[in-house]
Nucleic acid binder design. Structure first.
Lengths: 236, 236
DNA sequence: ACAAAAGTGTTCACACTACACCCATGG
DNA sequence: CCATGGGTGTAGTGTGAACACTTTTGT
């Protein structure tokens, strides 16, 4: 073997370095539709155009930390569920300079969203069925995030991150329908939910969205572990 | 709205920049087992330890271009099937410096692999069941790549990228078993393949791996399009 | 009393699983 | 002639899809 051992200096120095950004696709659920949080880009080029929330990664920050920082800045919430989508690195994807961007999607509880923040950052919750054109490759990021969300939501019980602890079955079904963009049969849906036995039914009802009222449920972490331990897998 | 428009200079300048690498998880199939291509790291720190193939992204290169460059360097093949796994950006993931790495997995045809390259780069095909400890977070990358590969291979007909055009059904089954790491029933497997009607059976046999010989098949792109057009989905 | 949404079971079709024997050939 | 791997069908089970009426309550 004629392998040469290089000095680290030769290897790490004199290489190109890049700006790295974290862009967030922030999903929320309201009015029976899936929405994402968009803002007007505050900087040239393309100032004023619709854009995802983003920020540059700094020296002593992981990619996830950078994304969390962006999420906290725009929502003031901590512990938001977040997952990496992909890295985007086309040479001219950002016309303002060479920037490699890592996209994350996040699920936020819209009940506890501070609407004053929307004002502050000129941000709005936009129905995913009415997405405008976004800057750079942000539309592609949203598309990829949606694809991933649809997959994940069908395989893992992450959907409960959209709700503030308790939720009704009709609301849960509406949410799945909003994510998959297709109707789901009510009886089959409830049958499947019931068969997993991972929810606790509460004694109280949500009487706001109907006269009769729908019972609240909560996700039971422990029951879910038992469910997994029995060799079954979440699937919806 | 009290949104300030920044000048691009303020926005893009004076931000941290990073070395960005593309690391490749190169999968190949031989001896009825899935293998990945590993090399001895040629540079300090950790020179001589097992490592994935990687390279730094340069100025006028996309992430995909950088990964392709790495793949071509180590395999001398072009048009290799490749897909992004994830970006890895923990602050101290590379102990030689701050490097953000984007992992790609690739599927190569081992029949046409030039073994002299293995010598040149001190590279070896290692059975995935016998993976050594790799440098940095490369083991995690391989794990993530395998998870993604298992999913993709079950949903899209990418598995044929492991073969040099033609292949036998026993070999195809062996490959699925190697990827999923579990036995598959021969009759059920063949029934499902047949029901999709996306392969063409050739008149010739592979007589090397058995006395009787197994018929060769080729993937038929057109039949696959018809299959999709009929509203069905690939699943294996 | 009526409108509006919540809640509840059964049937049917299809897909997945399990399973055992004969065939072709080289040595 | 025998050892080795290639090739073939059927029956049973479970899962997903279709489908309609009763209940509750606010107005």
């Amino acid at each position: 073997m004629n392998n040469t051992i290089f000095m680290a200096d030769q290897y790490y120095l004199n290489k190109s370095t890049f700006l790295v950004a974290a862009d967030c696709i922030v999903f929320g659920f309201k009015e029976k539709e899936l929405h994402i949080l968009l803002t007007r880009r505050p900087v040239e080029p393309l100032a004023g155009e619709w854009s995802l929330m983003g920020g540059f990664v700094s020296e002593n920050e992981s990619l996830e930390d950078a994304a969390k920082k962006v999420l906290f800045e725009y929502t003031q919430q901590k512990g938001i569920y977040m997952e990496q989508v992909n890295a985007y690195g086309a040479v001219d994807r950002d016309i303002g300079g060479r920037v490699i961007s890592v996209a994350f999607y996040a699920l936020v509880r819209l009940e506890e969203f501070d609407t004053s923040l929307a004002q502050k950052f000129d941000a709005r919750w936009i129905n995913i069925k009415e997405l405008p054109q976004l800057v750079f490759d942000h539309n592609k990021m949203v598309e990829d995030a949606l694809t991933l969300l649809r997959f994940k939501v069908s395989m893992q019980p992450i959907i409960f991150n959209f709700f503030d602890e308790k939720f009704t079955l009709p609301a849960l079904q509406d949410l799945y329908e909003a994510i998959y963009q297709r109707p789901i049969d009510k009886r089959n849906f409830r049958k499947k939910i019931a068969s997993m036995n991972i929810l606790d039914k509460l004694d109280i009802k949500d009487t706001l969205s109907s006269k009769r009222g729908a019972f609240y449920y909560v996700f039971n972490e422990e029951k879910y572990r038992d469910f997994l331990a029995s060799g079954k897998f979440f699937s919806l």
